[in-house]
Simulated scan of single mutants.
Amino acid sequence: MKGLLDEETLSRLDLYPLETKVNIVTIAILSFKDCGLSKCITRYLVAMAAADLMIIVWNVILHRIATLYWGSTFLFYTPVCRFILFMSPAAIDISVWLTVSFTFDRLVAICYQKLKTKYCTEKTAVVVITTVSSVFCLKNIPWPFLYSSYYNWMLWGCKLSRNVFIEPSWIAYSWIEQLLTPVIPFFLILFFNIVTVKRILIASRGRMSLRKHSNDRDEKDPEMINRRRSIVLLFAISSSFILLWMTTVIYFIYIRITSAFKGRSLFPAFPRFQEAGIILQLLSSCTNTAIYTITQRKFRNLLLSAIKYPFTLIGKLVKCGGKHY
């Protein structure tokens, strides 16, 4: 799988059940409330929040925490265990590539105005999200076949086959699997942001030069304000992804260079460094809500209203009860 964590490390992941609720609230707000974003952006943000929720449920709660605390439940039934081991990497892949898709969408919107009208639409966003989800579900189908039951006479537990370390086909699959997530997305997002920044700087200088010679130079430029909001959201999400996945990418590059053309080791080098990378990549499923809150005023106000609502309702009920009494 994408790394193993010890008991001490897993005990630090108790924040994820709370983050599950926050992601659900985020999906509800983005889906049913107007946050001042285009429908195209909203589609991507809802899909990314849903993918983050899938990571928390499948990868953190069911795959990592449940195996530690619920060791004798139906989750260890081999077919169930295999399905969890299929959904865990699939959720990570979908989340990562939706971030890539969103970054590319914003690149087109900011840098290529002619293509923007055709590509940056709600319909295209739905097609891209559906395609990404389908492709990476198919890509992870081999994972369940890497695991077998602990016992020949009983379907219990999932044991990793040693063939993954010696058979050329499985070694090749491990290379492809790691390159697709996160190495290629990491460098794609980095490249998209560099191109976007370059184009923004050129466009901003041109627009500021024109406004200096116009009569409305003292007025606020709505185009620049909208562009700034989109840019802040894009860079916040992209920067968060790059920083939180950097450890995993560095670890992958180092291991593959120092043991070039060799299969995965049963006992990985620098396990603590690997565990740190896994924790950081899992934390990436918790950052988007904070980013929306910090960068989007309307979303922040709606989220605060949703958090205050139960307390407001309780206060009203207590007040009504007091009057009745």
Rank of each mutant, 00 (worst) to 15 (best):
K2T: 08
L13N: 02
E19R: 13
I24W: 09
T26Q: 04
A28D: 07
L30S: 01
S31R: 13
K33R: 15
D34I: 11
G36K: 01
R43K: 14
L45I: 07
V46N: 06
A51D: 03
A51F: 02
I55Q: 05
I56P: 02
R64A: 07
L75P: 00
V80G: 00
C81M: 00
I84E: 01
F86L: 12
A91I: 05
V100D: 08
F104T: 01
A109S: 14
C111S: 15
K114G: 11
T124G: 10
V126E: 11
V126K: 15
V127H: 07
V128R: 04
I129L: 00
V135G: 10
F136D: 04
I141S: 05
P144V: 02
P144E: 01
F145Q: 08
G157N: 02
L160E: 06
E167I: 10
S169T: 12
S174Y: 08
L188E: 04
I189F: 05
L190W: 02
V195E: 13
V197P: 03
I202W: 12
M208S: 10
S209L: 12
S209C: 09
K212M: 12
R227P: 05
R228T: 00
R228N: 06
S240I: 01
T247V: 12
T247D: 09
V249F: 08
I250S: 10
I255A: 14
I257R: 10
S259F: 12
R264W: 11
R264H: 15
S265Q: 08
F267W: 10
A269Q: 11
R272D: 14
G277D: 06
I278G: 02
I279M: 11
C286T: 04
N288Q: 14
N288R: 10
F299C: 11
A306E: 07
A306C: 13
P310C: 03
I314M: 10
K319D: 07
K319W: 09
G321D: 08
H324K: 12
Y325C: 11
